[in-house]
């Protein structure tokens, strides 16, 4: 196996007394799509900043592309593409100018940035908006422009921090499609997200992070297999009744989670268990049988939901 592109050993980041990242370790291989999944405030973005060589770690060892971000920040950054959580496009410039000026920061010639900008406008489906100002673009367009900007230097690794937060479903799917194409081309992707479907769609391997520490690691399928059941039956009886009913159906399924708004029953056959519940006379207001997701994994590991 080749050298990992990221090797993190017990990295810690403290802000005064607050420990944002508490000794996490992981490796990312070249061409891999690696996700950090966790709720807001879990330490994902801080970890990402340390990888992106813009935030100095408090302790631990970190190597990115064989170099230490604390000492070789500019060299590491020359090989990265970064999509930050909040858009930081230059509002004073037009769409195409945003790409051109950004490419210059990597030492690209005027001719090279012009050619690359046109290719990436095509990739981001923004060619017809090349001369537009940034401000009137939709949220999805701004994200696509930010992704196009991050690709100006043909990066070895793309870092995406919550890439689709705040986008509507259609814009998310367009973005996922673009990112999936990059993944197919062999670009190493490292992304943070608190959306389980995003993590499942885009990641080959995931670490689940909470309160600055790693709770679990594996592929989405492995994690689901290890920490959840095949199916999940969700039943709702109304917020006052869920707890009461739960006592009478406690023996059904492999395990249960009683949330304020619903009861989750982890099972290998949700429909069968729903029939058992109904036969006992507990007719739920609504019910749903679905396959297990990373949300269930997270709930199992932390006792909390991702969007709590």
């Amino acid at each position: 196996m080749s050298e990992p592109v990221i090797r993190a050993e017990n990295i810690v980041k403290k802000y005064g007394d607050f420990v944002a990242v508490d000794g996490i370790s992981f490796e990312v291989q070249r061409g891999e799509s690696f996700g950090l999944l966790g709720p807001n405030g879990a330490g994902k973005s801080t970890t990402m900043k340390m990888i992106a060589a813009v935030s100095t770690r408090t302790s631990g060892n970190l190597e990115v592309l064989g170099m230490d971000p604390n000492t070789d920040g500019p060299a590491i950054r020359s090989q990265l593409g970064v999509v930050p959580q909040e858009d930081n496009l230059d509002q004073e410039l037009r769409v195409r100018e945003n790409l051109i000026t950004y490419g210059r920061f990597f030492g690209m010639s005027h001719a090279a940035v012009a050619k690359r900008a046109d290719e990436l406008l095509e990739f981001a489906q923004l060619t017809d908006r090349a001369k537009s100002k940034v401000e009137p673009l939709s949220g999805g367009m701004k994200r696509r422009l930010t992704i196009a900007r991050s690709l100006m230097n043909d990066p070895q690794m793309l870092l995406l921090d919550e890439p689709t937060t705040g986008l509507d479903p259609q814009a998310r799917h367009i973005l996922w499609d673009r990112l999936f194409r990059l993944k197919e081309q062999g670009t190493t992707l490292v992304l943070t997200t608190h959306y389980m479907d995003e993590a499942e769609q885009l990641s080959d391997r995931i670490i689940v992070v909470d309160k600055g520490a790693i709770m679990a690691e594996g592929s989405p399928a492995q994690l689901i297999r290890q920490y959840s059941s095949k199916e999940v039956l969700e039943v709702r009886y109304g917020s006052d009744k869920n707890k009461t009913v739960a006592k009478s159906i406690a023996d059904i399924g492999e395990r249960q989670e009683i949330l304020p708004d619903r009861i989750l029953i982890y099972s290998d056959n949700g429909e069968r268990d729903l029939a058992v519940i109904t036969n006992r006379g507990h007719h739920p207001t609504t019910s749903l049988v679905r396959r297990s997701s990373l949300e269930d994994v997270f709930l199992r590991l932390t006792g909390r939901t991702l969007v709590e």
């Binding site: 080749s2 592309l65 064989g66 500019p74 060299a75 590491i76 020359s78 000026t101 990597f106």
Partner: peptide
Amino acid sequence: MKNVADIKADAEKPRRWGWWYVAELR
């Protein structure tokens, strides 16, 4: 994967001219 020496060579131009690229942007 580029080796460390190649990467540092890539970063040489912005190391020298980065200040001008920022002025150019502004």
